[in-house]
């Protein structure tokens, strides 16, 4: 193959994978925008989503779409639960305390998942028969298309919720100024709960899509995508919703290109290298605004 076909091929693969990073990144960015906390447990919600989908498909024999919806619902409930138990009591505590709790929540979910689901991987059911689509010298798979399509659909849905519903407007108000929102009679606790619910549901959908894509799930699958999606959120400008989408696609593409033209052992280092570059060169991200601490 010529180098540019490889390039195009890898960009396409990258966009497919990137759409899932974008889905997870949305959760990070929304939560950060609203309570200024990295929800370290977010990657674990994504993992749980994959497992919920797995059980819905295998034990309950549900079709894909209901399975996905149920998984998203369960993930939303768990997301809200984590916020209620672990984060809400610490909202006014020093930042380091909330961050440590977040790390604790992440570890806890991971370990419990490992004990209940087993540490080894499980094959994800082949709900959709594998098909290869050829366009000129470029190969696509139907799974990539589904992954991409579902992700885009969910993002459009999110956009509609955030911009055209009452709760969406409340979310934006809280992320701009929590005190002012409170004074306007917005139930800030409810809005934060809702944000966790939406973010978690998106992550769960991402988990199922990736499970289908790679045909396997395991209790550790949330760690790396979680970190990478976080980097994607920072790259796009944390707290900025379109930024998370852009960052996700860029991260997915960058990672695939490094693997194609460099070495696969550096795959996971890409994310961190990107992160460090962004933080050094443009800490507010591609689409973010610069902010200074008030004296």
């Amino acid at each position: 193959m010529v180098w540019y076909t490889i390039l195009i091929q890898q960009i396409i693969n990258g966009l497919a994978l990137g759409s899932v990073y974008a889905l997870i990144a949305l959760g990070y960015t929304m939560v950060y925008g609203i309570i200024k906390l990295i929800n370290f447990a977010h990657g674990e919600i994504y993992m749980l989503g994959a497992y919920f989908g797995f059980f819905a498909l295998t034990i309950f024999n549900l079709p894909l779409i209901p399975a996905m919806l149920i998984s998203m619902l369960l993930a939303a409930i768990i997301g809200m639960g984590i916020e209620r138990i672990a984060y809400r009591p610490l909202r006014n505590a020093p930042r380091i305390a909330a961050l440590i709790t977040a790390i604790g929540a992440s570890l806890l979910i991971q370990s419990v998942a490992q004990l209940t689901f087993g540490a080894s991987f499980r094959p994800f059911p082949q709900v959709i028969p594998f098909q290869r689509i050829q366009v000129g010298p470029i190969f696509l798979t139907n799974r990539q298309l589904i992954m991409f399509g579902v992700a885009i659909l969910l993002m459009v849905l999110l956009h509609l919720i955030v911009h055209y519903t009452k709760i969406g407007k409340a979310m934006r108000a809280v992320s701009m100024d929590k005190e002012a929102a409170l004074l306007m009679g917005i139930d800030v606790d409810k809005v934060i709960s809702f944000t966790f619910a939406v973010g978690s549901a998106l992550a769960a959908a991402g988990g199922i899509l990736v499970g289908m894509y790679y045909n396997r799930i395991d209790p550790y699958m949330g760690i790396m995508p979680g970190l990478k999606a976080f980097v994607a959120a920072v790259l796009g400008g944390i707290g900025v919703i379109p930024g998370a989408v852009l960052g996700g696609f860029l991260m997915g593409t960058a990672e695939n290109l490094v693997v194609a033209f460099g070495s696969s052992t550096y795959r996971d280092a890409v994310a961190f290298a990107v992160l460090i570059l962004v933080l050094l060169l443009r800490p507010s991200g591609l689409l973010g605004k610069r902010q200074n601490e008030k004296v």
Partner: peptide, 11 residues
Amino acid sequence: GDYLAIATLGF
């Protein structure tokens, strides 16, 4: 805070 945590983890 959060950024430092992730950046050091990344390093």
